[in-house]
């Protein structure tokens, strides 16, 4: 048992809204992700049980959608937009700067389990580029100074 009863009952509740229960797979994945910070097979099994859908339906769907990391990641999941509007304003530099500053590689988690840096496609914050999403939150119009300050804050907060 990985998912809490609370999450399971939220999933069950949300599923009632839909004309067909299978529609609730994606909301269920969100609830599981919200609680666990990542998704894996055992959660699919539990979701399938709660919803009364097939395990494979949950597993297939989860594998398709890329915003859910499929393994444990750092406390701060830094997703740097790599797409055109951000790239024109230095997002590739931003990624390199973050990796160097945190001493890690793309997709890997720092030893203190604080940070995982990944590159993602356009996050719809093009007019406030460059930007990154950290967990749920958008950080926009980034500058070196702003990034330094954020990292310091997160390290201090642990």
């Amino acid at each position: 048992m990985i998912l809490s009863n609370d999450t399971k009952s939220k999933i069950g509740e949300y599923a009632k809204k839909y004309p067909k229960v299978k529609s609730a797979i994606l909301p269920a994945l969100h609830y599981a992700y919200e609680e666990q910070g990542y998704l894996d097979d055992s959660m699919y099994e539990e979701i399938a049980q709660v919803l009364g859908v097939k395990f494979i339906e949950v597993a297939e769907a989860a594998s398709f959608y890329t915003m859910f990391p499929k393994q444990k990641r750092g406390k701060y999941y830094i997703q740097v937009c790599r797409n055109i509007s951000c790239a024109l304003l230095g997002s590739h530099h931003l990624t390199q700067y973050l990796l160097q500053k945190l001493g890690t590689k793309l997709g890997e988690t720092t030893k203190d389990h604080l940070f995982t840096v990944v590159e993602v496609e356009c996050l719809g914050s093009c007019c406030s580029a460059p930007m990154m999403q950290v967990n749920d939150k958008y950080y926009e119009n980034l500058t070196l100074a702003k990034v330094d300050q954020l990292i310091d804050e997160w390290r201090a907060a642990k």
Partner: peptide, 10 residues
């Protein structure tokens, strides 16, 4: 909304 460059709906 996901077309690169687009952030109006948001």
């Amino acid at each position: 909304e996901s077309e690169p460059g687009t952030c109006k709906d948001r």
